[in-house]
């Protein structure tokens, strides 16, 4: 008796939980096409004007540019740092290897708000550093542990004999890395890069401390929500959701979703 009724309760709970998580996004989608300038339900008509409004709102235009720049730079920097560190951790046996591994993961253990104030204070001690540069450092710190984790997992899944074979056939270590390791890692690296870009693009709490007067997109959206009351932010959300779906698709294609969380 219980055997047949158990799954249905489970099913209902699961559906409810998924709905609870998805509902905010679904509502945003609906209200972004509302023709009236309110956030109230139900929508009164169909319109695309809020989408046009996203791009004509100065703070969003600046925010999109700032966030993309920040995401691209911190992704590039942390990928280089992360790949080098991962190579050391996976391919070499050296004194302090375990400590290095823990050290690189350190930012994960610092609450984001503490990281924000810490980097703010750090910026005050360094002369002549621009706001954007500090933000790049902050975002690299946030992203690095994830990059290292993903790249280490990829490297461990790779046959080290391939590199040895290349070197046995006369390749120098850097040649073996460039012509054997890197191409084999290719997709894993692309997946890690997408993850890094997403993490950087959406960071809010720590970033908030350092934005000054050139807000990133999440900060601009936050400020807009607090002062205005029209569906422009809903249109913006829908656009970033499309970006999120693209990111999930790319990661599934390049590293497999399972790999990301296991």
């Amino acid at each position: 008796m219980t055997r047949s009724s158990m799954p249905s309760i489970l099913q209902i709970t699961t559906f409810g939980v998924l709905l609870f998580m998805a509902l905010p996004n679904l509502l945003i989608l609906v209200i972004s096409f509302n023709s009236a300038a309110t956030l109230a339900f139900p929508p009164t008509g169909l319109s695309l004007k809020w989408y046009a409004n996203v791009f004509s709102t100065p703070s969003f235009a600046v925010g999109i540019k700032q966030s993309l720049l920040l995401a691209a730079t911190s992704c590039a920097v942390s990928m280089v740092l992360g790949v080098l560190a991962s190579l050391a951790i996976v391919r070499f046996r050296f004194f302090g290897r375990q400590a290095a591994n823990v050290f690189v993961m350190a930012p994960l253990f610092v609450p984001e708000i503490v990281m924000g104030i810490a980097m703010l204070l750090w910026a005050n001690t360094v002369l002549f550093i621009s706001n954007t540069a500090v933000l790049v450092v902050l975002h690299c710190l946030i992203v690095l542990p994830y990059v290292v984790r993903l790249v280490v997992a990829n490297l461990q899944g790779m046959d080290p004999n391939l590199e040895s074979a290349a070197m046995l056939l006369g390749a120098r270590p850097h040649q073996a890395f460039l012509h054997v390791t890197l191409p084999l890692l290719g997709k894993g690296l692309l997946g890690a890069a997408v993850f890094a870009i997403v993490m950087s693009f959406h960071n809010f709490t720590a970033t908030m401390f350092l934005v000054g007067n050139s807000p990133t997109l999440p900060v601009a959206a936050y400020q807009y929500i607090r002062t205005e009351n029209d569906p422009t932010v809903a249109a913006l959300s829908t656009l970033t959701m499309l970006g999120g779906i693209l990111a999930v698709y790319l990661m599934e294609k390049w590293i497999g979703l399972e790999r990301l969380v296991r």
């Binding site: 997403v198 959406h202 999440p218 929500i225 970033t240």
Partner: peptide, 10 residues
């Protein structure tokens, strides 16, 4: 992966 600020807005 979706934006936290925008989720709260939803």
């Amino acid at each position: 992966l979706s934006d936290y600020v925008l989720k709260m807005f939803g």
